[in-house]
Amino acid sequence: MLAVLAAPGRDLVAAEDALADALERALTRWETDGVPAKPEAWVLTVARNRLRDLWKSSGYRLNAPLEGIDPVAEEIDAAEIPDRRLELMLVCAHPAIAAAVRTPLMLQTVLGIDSAAIAAAFAVEPAAMAQRLVRAKRRIRDTGIPFAMPAREDLAARLPAVLETVYGAYAIDRRREPGGAPQESLSAEALHLALTLTELLPDEPEVLGLAALVCLAEARRSARVDADGVFVPLDEQDPSVWDRSLLHRGEDLLARAHRCGRPGRFQYEAAIQSAHSSRAFGVPVDPHVVRKLYRALVLVAPSLGARVALAALDGEIDGPLAGLRSLDRLDAKDFQPAWVVRGHLLTAAGRLAEGGAAYRRSAGLTTDPAVVEYLVKLMQANDIRP
C-alpha cells in the first residue's frame, strides 16, 4: 500500500504519514461500523484523501502536476499490492541513493523493519541510522526518482541491493523470531519476494540462487526448536519434519541456477543448504563437500559468519586444535556464533574450563532464549557449570 501511495508524489514520508493516519482511523471506525468488504481499498482511499489535502496545502512541494494525479483507484485489486513492493525496492536501490543506505531503506520502507533492528544488524547507532533513512527518503522526493520498473540494462546495477535486502530480511527474521510461524513473520515475505524475483528474472543465476537459499532454509523452520522451546542445531534436527515441497522447490531452483554456469554468493550459500538438506533424502552430510563450498563462498563473499563456519568445519575434519587455529586468525570480537564454535572446539579438546567460559560468553551475546537454553544444556552435558 505504501508503494501505491508514494508513487504519484514520490514522497515516502508523506505516504507513510497518510497510511498511518488511515490505519488509525480504521481501528476506530471498524470497531463500530465493522470491517468493510474491501478493507485495502478503504484504507487506501482515506490515505489518498489525506495526501490530496497535503498536496493542496500552501508550501508543499510536489514533483508532479496536481491535475490528473490519482494515487489509488477507487476499486483497487488487493492482489496487485504485493508485487508493487519490488517496484518500491528498485526505487530505493536507485543510483541517486547512497549505496550504504539502500538496503536499510528497503528493509524499513518495504518490509517494515524498525530502524533500531536495522541499526543493530548493521552495527550502527539507532539515531544515526534513523537520520540516514530520513535523508534517503527526502532524496527520493527531491530528485523525483520515478516509481517504475527500470530498463533491463539499469536493473543489473540495482539488483545486488535488492537481493541483499531479501536475504537480510530473512536473516533478521530468523534472529528475532526463532520458531515463529512463517505467516507471523518476515520469512514468508522474504520467500514471496525471492520467488517473485525469479518470475521477473528467470535466467539470472543469483536470483535463482537466493530463492533456492530461502526455500531450503525455510523448509527447516519448524525443526529449529523442540517442544520445550529449546534451540535444535541443524545436525540434530529430525529431517522427517522438514517441508519436502520447499526442499524440492529449492533444489529445482538451485539446479536451474547451476545450469547458467555463473556461480555466485547466493548460489554457494544455497548449495551449502542443499548439502545439509541431503539427510532428508537418506544421504549423509559430507563435511568435506560442505567445507569445499564454504571455501568457495569465502572467496567471493568473505563474511565473518562464513569464515567462522569454515573454522568449525576445520575442527570437525582436522581436529579441534586445527579449528581453533583457524578461529584465532579471525577478528571475531563479540560475534556470538564464533564464541559458540570456540566453546565447542575447546570442549572437544578437553579444555573444559576455557570451553565453559566461551559458552557463557556466547550466551551473553544472544537475546534468543531458545539458544541460551540450548547452551546451558550443552554445558551441563559436558559437566560444565552454566
Rank of each mutant, 00 (worst) to 15 (best):
L293D: 12
G323Q: 10
S58I: 14
P126K: 04
H94Q: 05
L216Y: 11
R138W: 10
D228W: 02
A322L: 04
G34L: 01
E40D: 15
R132W: 03
I145C: 06
A309T: 15
V300R: 12
L234P: 06
A301Q: 09
A96P: 06
T45E: 15
T367M: 01
S57Q: 14
L253R: 11
L5A: 12
G315W: 13
D83A: 12
A3D: 10
L247Q: 11
A169D: 09
H276G: 03
A26C: 07
L208N: 04
E177W: 11
G229E: 02
C215S: 12
G179C: 01
G250S: 06
D314F: 13
A98P: 05
L197Y: 13
P202M: 00
R139D: 07
I140G: 04
L210G: 06
D114H: 08
R174W: 08
Q183W: 07
P233R: 00
R307P: 09
P320K: 04
E80F: 04
R256W: 10
A157D: 15
E16S: 05
D203N: 13
R361F: 03
M129R: 02
Y294P: 04
M1I: 07
I384Q: 09
Q108H: 14
G319Y: 13
G343C: 02
V340Y: 09
P160Y: 10
A309G: 13
A211C: 10
R307T: 11
L88T: 10
P320S: 03
L246P: 05
D21M: 04
A257G: 15
V232G: 02
E40I: 07
A188E: 13
V225G: 01
R295E: 14
L186A: 04
A117D: 08
R291M: 12
L346P: 08
A14N: 10
S185I: 00
D334V: 03
M106V: 09
Q380T: 12
E204I: 06
R249T: 15
A223N: 06
E206V: 03
A22V: 08
K292D: 15
M1W: 08
D77Y: 05
D11N: 14
Q380P: 06
K333W: 11
Y170Q: 10
L299I: 08
K292M: 13
A120N: 11
R342F: 04
N382T: 05
L247F: 09
L2F: 07
A370W: 10
G68Q: 08
I172T: 02
E199L: 02
D142W: 11
Q183G: 01
D203E: 15
E87G: 11
K377V: 00
